[in-house]
Design a protein around this nucleic acid. Structure first.
Length: 267
DNA sequence: AACGGAATCAACCGCGGGCAG
DNA sequence: GCTGCCCGCGGTTGATTCCGT
C-alpha cells in the first residue's frame, strides 16, 4: 500500500521506528531551535524524516512532560467516563490526563478499556462476576467512579515495565537524583544542567501543578559525546527526563529511584 | 524448544481546521 | 472570499512481544 502525504511526499525520507540517534538529534534540535515549524525542523536536525513524523515522535514520546507507566484504575475510570460523554475525542480526553498522550489513551482504550466496557454492558448488574469486581475494587480502595482532583489532574501512575525496544524512552532515560526537587505542592521537578531547553514551551497547561516553564524545566546539554542509549556508556547524568508529577508518598518515586539505580538497563 | 495466534503500541496516513497572504 | 500552507486529530497499520499449546 503506497499512500502519499502532503507532509511526507518527498521520497527518500526515512520511515519506521526511531533510533536513539535520531531521538538525540530531534531533542537537540528542539532544544536549540524550539519547534515552531515542524516542516523545517528535520532539515535543522539533520534528520531524514518528514516534519510530521518528527512532531509525532516528539508529542507522543520524547516530550518531557509525558508520564510513563501503566494506567491507574483512576485514569481508566476517567477515560471510560469521558469517552462516554466525548466519544473518540482523544485529544480532549488527553487534556484531562496530563502526561498522557492522545495516542497512548487511544491505544489503551482499544486494547484494554473497550473490552472492559463491553463486559460491563454485557454482564447483568447483579451477576457474580461484577459483584466480585466491585468487591475487588473496594478491597483495593478503588472508587468505581472517576475521581478528579479539583483541577482535573491525575497525579499518580504505576510504573510500566520497561520493554526491550531500541527506541523506547525508558531505554533512553537516565535520571540524576541531585537534580530532582520536590515542590511544596508535592510536584517533582527536575532541573537539568545545560542550556535552556525551551524558552517558549509549546506544551503548556493551565494547571498550576503541572505547568512546565523555562523556570523549572531546563533541558539537558546535548554534547556530542553524550549518548542517551543504554547500549552505550553515558557520559553525564544530565539527560532527558519524562516530566511527571507525583504526590509525595507516591510509588512513582520508587520507580524513579529504581530507574536511577539502573534497573531499566539490566537487559 | 518451537510454533502460531493474540496482544500491544509506535508510527503512518488522510482529512479538516486555522491562519496568513 | 479564495488559496495554499501548516498543524493537529483520529483511524489504521504493522512490527514486536507475549503467551498458550
Amino acid at each position: 500500500m503506497v499512500r502519499t502525504s502532503s507532509y511526507c511526499e518527498k521520497s527518500g525520507l526515512k520511515k519506521g521506528t526511531w533510533t536513539p540517534e535520531e531521538d538525540r538529534k530531534l531533542i537537540a534540535c528542539i532544544s536549540s531551535h524550539g519547534c515552531r515549524n515542524w516542516r523545517h525542523l528535520p532539515k535543522f536536525a539533520g534528520l531524514s524524516r518528514c516534519g510530521k513524523s518528527c512532531r509525532l515522535r516528539w508529542m507522543n514520546y520524547l516530550r518531557p512532560d509525558i508520564k510513563r507507566g501503566n494506567f491507574t484504575e483512576e485514569e481508566d475510570n476517567i477515560i471510560i467516563s469521558l469517552h462516554e460523554s466525548l466519544g473518540n475525542r482523544w485529544s480532549q480526553i488527553a487534556a484531562v490526563l496530563p502526561g498522557r498522550t492522545d495516542n497512548e489513551i487511544k491505544n489503551h482504550w482499544h486494547t484494554n478499556l473497550k473490552k472492559k466496557t463491553k463486559q460491563v454492558t454485557k454482564i447483568p448488574p447483579s451477576s457474580p462476576v461484577e459483584q466480585k469486581e466491585t468487591q475487588n475494587s473496594k478491597a483495593e480502595g478503588c472508587d468505581p467512579k472517576p475521581i478528579l482532583t479539583q483541577n482535573h489532574q491525575i497525579l499518580e501512575s504505576t510504573p510500566r515495565s520497561p520493554q526491550p525496544s531500541s527506541s523506547k524512552v525508558s531505554d533512553l532515560a537516565i535520571f540524576d537524583s541531585n537534580n530532582m526537587t520536590m515542590g511544596q505542592d508535592g510536584v517533582t521537578s527536575v532541573n537539568f544542567s545545560g542550556a535552556n531547553f525551551w524558552t517558549e514551551p509549546s506544551v503548556t497547561d493551565t494547571n498550576d501543578a503541572y505547568n512546565v516553564t523555562s523556570a523549572n524545566f531546563v533541558a539537558p546539554k546535548l554534547d556530542d559525546d553524550m549518548i542517551l542509549s543504554p547500549h552505550s556508556p553515558v557520559s553525564s547524568a544530565e539527560v532527558f527526563f519524562p516530566f511527571m508529577s507525583y504526590e509525595e508518598d507516591c510509588d512513582g518515586l520508587d520507580w524513579l529511584t529504581n530507574l536511577m539505580e539502573g534497573e531499566h538497563l539490566d537487559n
